[in-house]
Simulated scan of single mutants.
Amino acid sequence: MPRLAAAWSRRPRLTRNGLYVLTLTVMASQVAYVTGNNIFWFLFSSGLAILLANAFLGWRGLRRLSIRRILPQTAFAREPFAGSYEVTNNGRLPAFFVIFEDTPVPPRAADGEQRPVFAFAASIPPRQTAIVPFSTRLTVRGWNRFTRVRVSSDFPFGFFRVAREIALADEILVYPRVGRVLQPLPVERAGDGAQVLTQLRPQPGEDDFAGLHEWRPGDNPKAIHWPSWGRMPGKLLAREYERSRVPRACLFLDTQSGSDRRFEQIVSFAAANLLDLHRSGVAAALWAGTGDLVSASVPEALLAELAEVKRSEEACVDLPAAVEEARGHGDLPVVIGDGTWRRNREAPWTEGVVVVDVSTADFRGRYQVRQGGA
């Protein structure tokens, strides 16, 4: 656990009240020097002692603290989540009125200001560990990194604020912002037009064993091949089973967009529909602009793909071929983009494909974003 004593970075600073006391103390010293009045000498010495005691006690309270940040692995953009600091006081004196300030580093520029995280501990007893909770929200999807924690205290009189910073690296994967789907996708159009998409969830052992593959987020934990862990420490493998294929709702993201705001609408709409399909028991897959379709039994694996997808200025040349391949397998292709219908309305591959265009007027009737805080 990182020690705060190894990260002194700022000297004690006077607060506004401390500046008033310092001014009065200096004035008392001048009057005492000119007049020789013992009362002013007493006021000068008392004010100076209080200021020095404030600076020393604040420094002494923070000097022996050790901090560990506790974050969840994932969160949704603009949705509050809970975290905490595990603070250990290794000193022989308690620490009082400790303020923690944390500022995340987003993967790219945010739409609005990134608000710092604040937490407060009234007291931390000596030789004990305290859990200091906090609640915050992040606005930018992707890997948000926390690099430093600023710890400060103005105990006991509030005249000096002692602040220290410690390097403490953590990260959290922020899923896209999720709204409410007003018009569900027409999943009954998959396959031959009459078949309804359903999600088969066979457990390990119900199908034929096909081999092993490296464990990926979204794999069933019961499929982990533990004997291989003993032979190859650090490499986790999972069993792979052959199963009868079922039609899926395949969401294709047209990453070509001229606006960051509209592209975030594309990603948000895809995330909300993936969750909606999962709750409805429908098999789903995702194509995020390049590569192959990604399919998983849990939506978190697909949300992780959406968290890191990036906007492109160029056309997705692989989109038509990917859609045709999915349609050839009997899946339902759903293309989500910005101006996709306008650019490809005459293209043969769009025939029978559900195209959701965020730039059209009817998109508001399909999707509504939650009005959360920034």
Rank of each mutant, 00 (worst) to 15 (best):
L48D: 10
L48I: 08
L48M: 12
I50Y: 09
I50C: 10
I50N: 04
L51P: 15
L51Q: 08
L52S: 12
L52K: 01
L52V: 15
A53Q: 04
A53L: 14
A53E: 06
N54H: 03
N54S: 13
A55V: 09
A55T: 10
A55N: 09
A55M: 08
A55D: 13
A55I: 11
F56I: 14
L57D: 05
L57R: 05
G58P: 15
G58F: 07
W59L: 13
W59D: 15
G61L: 02
G61H: 10
G61V: 05
R63F: 14
R63D: 14
R63M: 11
R64M: 06
R64V: 03
R64S: 13
R64D: 15
R64C: 08
L65V: 08
S66V: 03
S66W: 04
I67L: 14
I67T: 07
R68D: 15
R68L: 07
R68C: 07
R69Y: 00
R69I: 04
R69G: 06
R69T: 05
I70P: 00
I70V: 14
I70R: 06
I70S: 06
L71G: 09
P72F: 02
Q73V: 01
Q73D: 10
Q73E: 13
Q73G: 11
T74L: 06
T74C: 08
T74I: 03
A75D: 07
A75S: 14
A75R: 12
A75T: 10
A75L: 07
A75C: 13
F76G: 01
F76K: 00
F76R: 01
A77S: 12
R78W: 08
R78F: 06
E79P: 00
E79H: 06
P80Y: 05
P80M: 07
P80L: 03
F81L: 07
F81C: 02
G83P: 01
G83S: 06
G83A: 08
G83M: 06
S84I: 01
S84H: 03
S84K: 03
Y85M: 09
E86K: 02
E86L: 11
V87L: 05
V87S: 03
V87Q: 01
T88E: 15
T88V: 05
N89V: 02
N89E: 10
G91L: 03
G91C: 04
R92N: 12
R92C: 08
R92M: 11
R92I: 09
R92E: 10
R92L: 14
L93I: 05
P94Q: 05
P94W: 04
P94C: 03
A95T: 02
A95D: 06
A95L: 03
A95M: 01
A95K: 01
F96Q: 00
F96W: 06
F96V: 00
V98G: 11
V98L: 10
I99N: 11
I99F: 06
I99T: 14
F100M: 12
E101K: 13
D102Q: 09
D102A: 09
D102F: 02
D102I: 08
T103A: 15
T103N: 14
T103E: 15
T103S: 15
P104R: 14
P104T: 08
P104G: 02
V105N: 15
V105K: 14
V105Q: 15
P106A: 11
